[in-house]
């Protein structure tokens, strides 16, 4: 789509959200029973949507290389497994990850913009972003300025996203709303509309550093915002719940939610990601269980 000048939307006109209603809808998704072949298909899809993540102060090149190895060799005993979508690291680790992943087809995603707090001058955030892109990140996960958003200074939040988007060049921009700090689903929906209007390629729930991180009600609210944006502009935006999704059942519930909210077009790693560190092994255990009929032990799955 040719980009018209991005304009800050009137957040007062964003469709309101009723939290109890959202929770009831989520309960319906959770009541879906996913069995047999559809379960295997769902698990494999979930696996392919994972952004395998390490975002620790203690991250080292060694740790990142191990993670990249795991990304490429999820579970060698099972044939024909998909790979995860990306490995997500801090900007200083992008080049290490890029080298380690080579031609695997797995992307390198980097957090940026003074992750996780975002409390830094715009110039620092932009430098952070450019550095990650130059080091080989194909995807940038930025954080919004929650303080400014909560203070009602929407222009600042919006302008920052526009500026970071420009700094990304060809890299895809995921905008982290840090929904656990926004206080209500109404604010989540408003922030989603703001981020998409500013040029987000993906919107993402959380840094993983704040609880609650991703929840199904928050994600559903963001999916509705994505749907509204799509119906309004024709522009498809991706969704990434991150943090707190660690088991297969939950991942399948998220996919049910995606399937029944945005439909077939979004059911691909191109438009949906899970930001998670321990989800992959649980999905692998479930796939093994489906194949063998035996419940599994983590002792048989490499940790990273």
């Amino acid at each position: 789509m040719s980009a018209a000048e991005p304009r800050l939307p009137d957040l007062a006109r964003v469709t309101p959200v009723d939290t109890v209603g959202v929770e009831e809808r989520v309960a319906r998704f959770r009541s879906r029973s996913i069995k047999t072949a559809s379960k295997v298909a769902g698990l494999r899809l979930a696996l392919s949507m994972i952004d395998l993540t390490t975002l620790e102060g203690a991250d080292t090149p060694g740790k990142v290389r191990q993670l990249c190895a795991k990304a490429q060799h999820l579970h060698e005993r099972m044939a024909d497994l998909p790979t995860v979508a990306a490995v997500c690291v801090y900007p200083t680790m992008v080049s290490v990850a890029r080298d380690a992943l080579g031609a695997s087809g797995i992307e390198v995603a980097s957090v940026a913009t003074a992750f996780p707090s975002g409390q830094a001058p715009l110039s620092v955030k932009l430098d952070d972003t450019r550095m990650a892109v130059e080091a080989g990140a194909a995807e940038i996960d930025m954080v919004i300025a929650r303080g400014a958003f909560l203070a009602g200074d929407y222009d600042t939040v919006f302008d920052e996203i526009v500026a970071v988007k420009a700094a990304c060049g060809d890299a895809h921009l995921k905008v982290i709303l840090e929904t656990g700090e926004l206080g209500s689903l109404d604010r989540v929906r408003q922030a989603s509309m703001l981020a998409m209007a500013a040029g987000a390629d993906f919107i993402k729930t959380s840094t993983g550093k704040i609880k609650p991180a991703a929840t199904m009600p928050v994600t559903l609210t963001m999916l509705h915002a994505i749907r509204d944006h799509y119906l309004e502009t024709g522009v498809q935006v991706g969704m990434k719940p991150a943090g707190g999704i660690s088991d297969s059942k939950t991942a399948l519930h998220y996919l049910v939610m995606l399937n029944e909210t945005l439909g077939a077009e979004w059911m691909t790693p191109r438009w949906f990601r899970f930001g998670a560190s321990s989800l992959a092994n649980d999905v692998l255990m479930q796939l093994e269980k489906q194949a063998t009929g035996r419940y599994q032990s983590l002792d048989y799955f490499s940790k990273d």
Binding site: K35, L231, G234, L255
Partner: peptide, 16 residues
């Protein structure tokens, strides 16, 4: 530019 977009639920992920 604002083309009329619609959501598609077929062929989606079908539950067994």
């Amino acid at each position: 530019m604002a083309t009329k977009s619609t959501l598609a639920f077929e062929p989606g992920w079908q539950y067994d």
